[in-house]
Amino acid sequence: MNRAFLAGAMLATLAAAVATQPSARAHVVADPALAQPGSYFRTALRVPHGCDGRPTTALRVTIPDGVVSVTPQAKPGWQVAVAMRKLDRPVDAGHGRMTDMVPGEVSWTGGSLPGNLFDEFGLVLKLPATPGAQLWLPVVQGCDGGEARWEQIPAAGQSAHDLPRPAALIRIADSSGKPAMHQHGAQPSATMPAAKAGDIAIEAPFARATPARVGGVFLTLKNGGKAADILVRAASPVAEHVELHEHVKDGEAMRMRPVDGGIPVPAGGITALQPGGYHVMLIGLKQPLKEGSHFPLTLTFQKAGAVTLDIPVMKAGAMPDDHSGHSGHKH
């Protein structure tokens, strides 16, 4: 059996395993999710799938208290609207301006996102200058003939990971620049770098548990420098072959294929390696990846050089937000 045939069979096995994972944990999240107090914060609501296979036709997000302005992203084929609400008393809207009208809801309607694809709906929000605050954004995902309501907010001492349909979350850093912890059972932020190679910070690395001979590694690359870089190679002793892969649309289907020329990391930008996009493929695992275990992975960049990471293995079907507040923007 040649390597090409073996790799193809392994990829088919992995794709089938991913397709059968329950989607309840793949909820709508804000990405990135860690902001500075009082900032104009650019984030996006990531819609990972439709409603039981039905296409997404609308998205409505409730804007939390303390946000005084919002600018939604225009999307071709979608109509976007901002519904305002009146406050009992004026608040500081920035730049010396007071207002008693603030955004209450943003909606995108009229489009159609196939149920097997994901997309992002961008927002720029003026956030409150409250270090350590957590802002919950309830989201209603309208689909053909139904809807999914991502509106649950954890009670004190409860974790969002215990909720089947949690609201999206934005964390505001505390005075040390770190996110708030121990509020509503929040986990430590995954936006703290796990490692650095030159100007490249590697954040939130993880792999999914799998009994198969193939696996995937996901992480975020943040380039703090003024020059673009490229992730050209990955290696690990746990697999016979390690390759950089991406998901591409082939007709109506999404397929995985090796990346030609490496994965770009733009100057001053962020590239996310995540399910449904770029990722590191482990081919020919020497033993199953078990939840709670760790293994080394070495990444080599064209300019920043090589760095070795310790990769934690999470549960099968885990998503970046399950790793706690994953931050990143797909390149």
Rank of each mutant, 00 (worst) to 15 (best):
G110N: 13
P131V: 04
G104E: 07
E105H: 13
D119Y: 06
P103H: 12
E105V: 02
D100C: 01
F118H: 07
G142F: 01
F121E: 04
L117H: 10
L127G: 01
D119T: 01
G115R: 09
T130R: 12
V140H: 09
F118C: 01
M101F: 15
W108H: 10
T109D: 14
K126L: 13
G104C: 07
L113G: 12
D144E: 14
V139M: 06
D144A: 06
E120V: 07
V139L: 07
D144K: 05
P131A: 04
L127C: 05
W108Y: 12
L137S: 01
G110T: 09
W108P: 09
G142C: 04
T130G: 00
C143V: 03
K126T: 09
G122K: 05
T130F: 03
N116C: 06
G110L: 15
F118Q: 04
G104S: 06
D119F: 05
P114H: 14
T99I: 05
T99W: 08
M101G: 00
G115L: 14
L117P: 00
L113E: 15
M101L: 15
G115V: 08
F118W: 13
L135T: 06
G111P: 11
S107M: 13
G132E: 07
T109N: 11
L113H: 12
P131G: 03
G132R: 07
L135C: 07
G132V: 04
G142R: 11
L123H: 10
S107T: 14
D144H: 03
S112K: 14
P131E: 05
E105L: 05
L127T: 03
T99D: 05
E120T: 08
G122T: 01
S107P: 01
T130K: 09
P128T: 03
G111Q: 12
S107K: 12
C143D: 04
F121A: 03
T109L: 13
F121Y: 15
W108K: 06
S112C: 10
A133G: 01
L113R: 15
P128F: 08
V102R: 15
V106A: 06
L135W: 13
G115M: 13
D100P: 00
D119M: 03
V102Q: 14
Q141I: 02
S107N: 09
L117C: 04
V102S: 13
G104W: 12
L125F: 11
M101Y: 12
Q134L: 09
G110C: 11
S107Y: 12
G111S: 10
G111Y: 11
N116H: 13
V139C: 03
V139P: 02
E105G: 07
S107I: 07
S112E: 10
T130A: 06
G110R: 14
P103M: 12
V102A: 14
G142W: 01
L137R: 01
K126P: 02
G111D: 13
E105C: 10
